[in-house]
Amino acid sequence: MLNMTNISKVYRSEMVQTHALRDFNLQVNEGEFIAVTGPSGSGKTTFLNIAGMLETYTGGTYELDGINVGKLTDNGRAELRNQKIGFIFQGFNLIPDLNLYENVEVPLRYRGIKTAERKRRIERCLEQVGLGARAKHVPAQLSGGQQQRVAIARALAGEPRFLLADEPTGNLDSLMARQVMELLESINKDGATIIMVTHDPELARRAQRNIQVVDGQICDFKLYQGGAEQQRATAGA
């Protein structure tokens, strides 16, 4: 479903070349819930950006649902992103001038979905995250946890095959973080594939697979199945 082979990403400035990712290999199967962990500056966000086609990569091959992402134009990537990927950001990234309904509507408008269908999906997703009654509120009227739930509703409204979450609980207190995590788990149970970048080992343990990134490479991954932990030491194995 998501297949990265020897992906590299180099940031170049006049003086310095920084290898953010190198020989990055990863295969993600449908329905998986993967946690990506690693220290700051290890390349987690770069990986997420490339997986979500927010950035291009320097070398290697990346296929999403059989489509070679490297061959797509900027417009092609925007379309694929809109159709297949839902994003959940650490800072929620809601648009403060729009109310909750309009925020959730944003990706649906870019897909050209008709008004009635948009309305149906927005109402369903806001209900799903428990905010159906507050559709006319603006983000500033909500708590952090509620805002993140709106962001999740926005990600779900497009019915994406992938959810990419960048430290979705990073800005939340532990109670709200737990609620958001439970919501993500329930979404995963409904069939969505989730890749979540996190610093929190507790949250990482709740995923099915934990990939640890160090210096732009996968150095370790663990499988968690019903509390039993299997560890493999080979990168990309």
């Binding site: 900027d74 417009n75 925007a78 992103r81 994003f87 950001f89 870019y110």
Partner: peptide, 11 residues
């Protein structure tokens, strides 16, 4: 964010 959610440059 809009770009990440699928907006093209033309949008």
């Amino acid at each position: 964010t809009r770009r990440a959610l699928g907006a093209k440059k033309s949008d």
